[in-house]
Design a binder for these strands. Structure first.
Length: 685
DNA sequence: TGCGAATGTCATAGT
DNA sequence: CAACTATGACATTCG
């Protein structure tokens, strides 16, 4: 079978689950991949296998054949070959038809999942019994269980019969696992069988020390479990969980013939601590056989409670951040000491505005912020940005005049702008911010109070763009100043800070400094903002001319505003045109270079061909010369003397005959022909 | 500090 | 004629 490209390589998600469940009185390891919806549904790939797509999950081809290969460890002899008779595609189709949102990692897992999902308790139990029998040396109970199962079901544990349940019925197996009467009967038989099995287990010396359905594989395993967590958990559980637990047990006991894998998974996810002993994510070694279960039981016992109790979100599972530093743990974050960070408490009283207190010095700890902090704060800042939109202030005519005097050259329209990228690159580290802030952007910073500069340690205007968050957080709730360096989303900043903000009593210089983020805006954007033009530059530039004119007429705009809007539109369009022109020019140059290369290659080819032709011509000439002299060597005149090739020449006539002509006649004939040719050419001209 | 690349802007011709 | 595009030329920024 050909394995197609796994869809998770395109960004889909997949969780590796090793599930230990109690089924038919046996402890079973299921090694599964839980499918998470991929961003792009590779339906075509999936249908290539002839598998329908689940509504909730996109099923995919098996990730690799390696997991299947290990299934042989679990199979008893003879069983493996039977299972192997099914192609992976066939088995997988069965699972798909049953809506199983898992990719089993092993063939046995797939088979078990299939049996359970199809409500075939006999098949599942038979498989388990076979598996246990296969590892009877290590799991003595398993052998008894296997035998009991076979007795009780009249060979129900036989792998062949197990397979004949869901698979051999052809189209029936593709129907949803509805509880039919047969299944109910099977379920009833199953419960009876379980009781028989339990009795047999006790008869061979295995006494259950736990709950009636406590999974058990061996006494060794039991001994390796120091704490029976289930008991404790059960005591602590609310009523609804207890009810669910009972339901899950009914499922897991096989008494509910309508058991399907989705139910199972819901149970697993809803109360994993009780219904399962272990779900571990990540690189848990594949457990395929009973012996392996035993050997790794210590690992599980150590891991179960931890693994189950962890609230693993999909985000975390996808990120797989080793230290869980991405986790949004408000308690953890708020519990972090805040002292190292700058505190900002804006006084509501304008008289208390103290610049020195406003921007305290930056210490080294601030420079040592981790990347996780940066990421976290970036998200936080984005939300802060939203809050900032409510902080619009009034129009400042002084600012307008200054803006229109600014000499910098920057446009309002950012087209995949390198401006943004450069800004981001520039602010990739706090260190660089300091350095650049110390040397750059002198024009406006020169007018900025030095005490403030000193207070912030030479901030560049770009980090100052984070003042949004500073003001927001500091002004409203006194949150620390820690986010000031962390937001790298300068584009978003530019978008969201399109309004001025201030508060009563804020000094003009502080306002100017804080609003110096406008340097991140283009000149036109700043101008538009200063004139309170109610459209974005992008709108102005990209809008169709009709809409543009309607917009101008609909709004009551001043002449200055209209003029600026038209200039913005003209410049923006011209900027695009210039970029297109340059791109076109570059393309032309590249095409010309390509043409030059092609022509050079063609020239070389032609030269090679010419050399070959010349070589062939020379060979032909040589052959002709040899032939010529060979003919003359053999020629004899009337007296039988050889003909001198210097006096005579061979001449081919039109009818193919060859004449021996004196060279004098040949040369005169050539002269006449040349003259005729000349006359003809002259006539043509 | 000079240099070159990238980009914005203006003027102008063309569509 | 207005609007837009294309392009050369110049200025500015930045690495």
């Amino acid at each position: 079978m050909k394995y197609l490209k796994p869809w998770w390589s395109d960004g889909g998600g997949l969780l590796h689950l090793t599930i230990l469940l109690s089924l038919a009185g046996l402890r079973v390891d299921l090694d599964l991949y839980l499918l998470l919806p991929p961003p792009t549904l590779l339906r075509d790939e999936f249908l290539l296998l002839g598998c329908p797509t689940s509504s909730a999950y996109a099923l995919s081809p098996f990730p690799a054949s390696g997991g299947w290969g290990r299934a042989g460890q679990l199979h008893p002899k003879g069983r493996e070959s039977d299972l192997a008779a099914l192609s992976e595609g066939q088995l997988f189709r069965e699972l798909c038809a049953l809506g199983v949102p898992f990719i089993p990692r092993t063939r046995v897992d797939a088979w078990l999942v299939h049996s359970v999902a199809a409500g075939d308790a006999d098949g599942a139990r038979g498989l388990l019994g076979s598996a246990a029998a296969a590892s009877s040396s290590a799991v003595e109970v398993g052998a008894s269980v296997d035998g009991g199962s076979q007795e009780a079901t009249g060979g129900g544990g036989d792998p062949h019969e197990a397979r004949s349940g869901p698979l051999a019925t052809g189209e029936e197996q593709k129907a949803p696992a509805e509880p039919t009467s047969d299944m109910l009967d099977a379920g009833g038989r199953a419960s009876e069988e379980i009781e028989v099995l339990r009795e047999r287990c006790e008869a061979v010396g295995y006494s259950s020390q736990h709950e009636e359905n406590e999974p058990r594989v061996s006494t060794l395993r039991e001994s390796l479990q120091p704490n029976n967590k289930n008991k404790q958990n059960k005591a602590d559980k609310p009523a609804w969980e207890t009810e669910k637990t009972a339901k899950s047990r009914r499922h897991l006991n096989g008494t509910d013939p309508s058991l399907c894998l989705e139910d199972l998974f819901q149970l697993l996810s809803s109360q994993p601590e009780n219904s399962l002993e272990g779900i571990s994510l990540g690189d848990i070694p594949l457990l395929s056989s009973g012996s392996e279960v035993m050997n790794s039981s210590a690992h599980y016992n150590m891991n179960f409670s931890q693994a189950i109790s962890q609230d693993v979100s999909l985000h975390e599972a996808m990120l797989l951040c080793p230290n869980n530093t991405f986790r949004r743990d408000p308690v953890k974050r708020t519990s972090q000491p805040q002292e190292p960070f700058l505190q900002l408490n804006f006084p509501t009283n304008p008289e208390q505005t103290n610049l020195t207190g406003f921007l305290p010095p930056v210490d080294n700890q601030m420079r040592n912020l981790t990347s996780q902090d940066l990421l976290y704060d970036l998200d936080v800042n984005i939300f802060d940005e939203i809050n900032l939109m409510s902080l619009a202030a009034d129009f400042d005519p002084v600012e307008v005049s200054q803006l229109f005097e600014e000499p910098d050259s920057d446009s309002g329209l950012s087209l995949n702008s390198s401006q943004g990228s450069s800004s981001v690159a520039k602010s990739n580290s706090s260190q660089s911010m300091y350095e650049e802030g110390a040397i750059g952007y002198s024009s406006d910073l020169d007018s900025f109070p030095h005490d403030l500069e000193g207070a912030v340690g030479g901030y560049s205007p770009e980090p100052i763009c984070h003042r949004d968050h500073v003001i927001d957080s500091g002004f409203h709730d006194g949150v620390a100043f820690q986010h000031i360096f962390h937001n790298h989303t300068y584009h978003l900043q530019a978008e969201s800070t399109s309004k001025y903000f201030s508060w009563p009593g804020m000094s003009q210089r502080v306002s100017r400094y804080l609003n110096d983020t406008d340097r991140n805006l283009s000149r036109d954007e700043r101008r538009a903002k200063a004139l309170h033009i109610p459209f974005s530059v992008e709108e102005i530039v990209c809008m169709p001319v009709d809409s543009f004119n309607n917009m101008l007429s609909r709004y009551n705009l001043t002449d200055l505003q209209v003029s600026l809007i038209r200039d913005i539109r003209r410049r923006g369009k011209n900027k695009v045109a210039a970029q297109n022109c340059r791109k076109r020019k570059l393309d032309i140059i590249l095409n010309l270079e390509e043409d030059v290369c092609n022509l050079q290659a063609k020239k070389e080819t032609l030269e090679r061909e010419r050399a070959q032709c010349n070589k062939a011509i020379n060979i032909m000439k040589q052959k002709l010369h040899d032939l010529y002299h060979d003919v003359f060597r053999k020629l004899r005149d009337d007296q039988g003397r050889p003909v001198n090739p210097n006096h005579y020449a061979l001449q081919c006539s039109h009818d193919g005959s060859v004449l021996i002509v004196p060279k004098e006649l040949v040369t005169s004939g050539h002269k006449k022909e040349n003259q005729k040719g000349k006359r003809k050419r002259e006539k043509r001209n």
